[in-house]
Design a binder for these strands. Structure first.
Lengths: 151, 151
DNA sequence: CATGGTGGCGAATTTTATGCCGTTCCAGTC
DNA sequence: GACTGGAACGGCATAAAATTCGCCACCATG
């Protein structure tokens, strides 16, 4: 993971679809070298994949919310069960298992507020292990295009 | 945004680097048709870009936390200022502006707990508009590879 | 029944990926 | 100073892919 690797990763985070030639050109190295570097990064698991970034509205997900959830009892089994169930719900983008006051944080994205309400009442509340949850609607989200490597 | 567009989007979310031919093959359409569809989706802003998914540890970001923040006064100016400042901090992956008890939620990723502590005390606490914040360390994260289009 | 627009198709052309290999450069070692 | 291993380079050949473009089927419309 030298300076060149970092630069490759940075460029691929910004645009994963540029050709190997273009990548090499921007880095000032030979395409063959660049290709081998990218492969090595993939082999080592540094590059885990490539994903398209899609407009949420086109996916009927114009409304986002963060839902913090408390479950009981706090056993490994209950945690795992809830984590898996939550992750399988189509409205849920990601599940965070937390240390602290809340046990989970769910990042959800739905079509509209009606859908959010329905999700909370009809799907989430149905789960017996939940002893409380709190929902915060997301007004805006600023997302970093490419998190850089920290020093 | 017909059924075919949805399928294209789904496949590109899963693997943005597969060739246009492979994409077309999986969809049962001609490569030229597929290319035109992808371009149209890009023109319409449905596809916003392509990003490499990088192992956080390789970026010195093995520890994640969610930090909920309250600021005062709740003016448009203070909100915007804090939002921008937070987004510019390298430790911050994304900033959510929330409705409800908390005003912001920061998703941060740092090298280790020492770094997290330093970030909270030396960078975040320095901001005068903050009247309180609460940090939850992330034990695990389950992230959906490809959020599907909701019905 | 024309007719114009849309979307799709597939052949042709250009560009890229990929593997291979001899050469060069550099750093560390003797 | 000579040697050596590793990394990068650059050229080349082949395969694969991207991109272009003319043509056709379909369909709603007048």
């Amino acid at each position: 993971m030298d300076e060149l690797d970092s630069a490759i990763v940075r460029l691929l985070q910004t645009d994963a679809r540029q050709s190997n030639r273009e990548l090499a050109r921007q880095l000032g190295i030979a395409p063959s070298t660049c290709l081998e570097r990218v492969r090595a990064l993939t082999r080592r698991g540094v590059i885990r994949g490539y994903h398209a970034d899609i407009d949420p509205v086109a996916l009927n997900r114009g409304v986002q919310a963060m839902v913090s959830v408390q479950v009981r009892p706090l056993s490994r089994e209950v945690i795992n069960t809830f984590k898996t169930s939550a992750a399988e719900m189509p409205e849920v983008l990601s599940v965070f298992v937390l240390a602290g006051g809340d046990d989970f944080l769910l990042h959800v994205a739905v079509r509209d507020l009606d859908h959010l309400h329905a999700f909370l009442l009809d799907r989430l509340s149905k789960r017996k292990e939940i002893v409380g949850f709190r929902t915060s609607v997301v007004f805006q989200q600023v997302q970093k295009a490419a998190p850089s490597r920290l020093p």
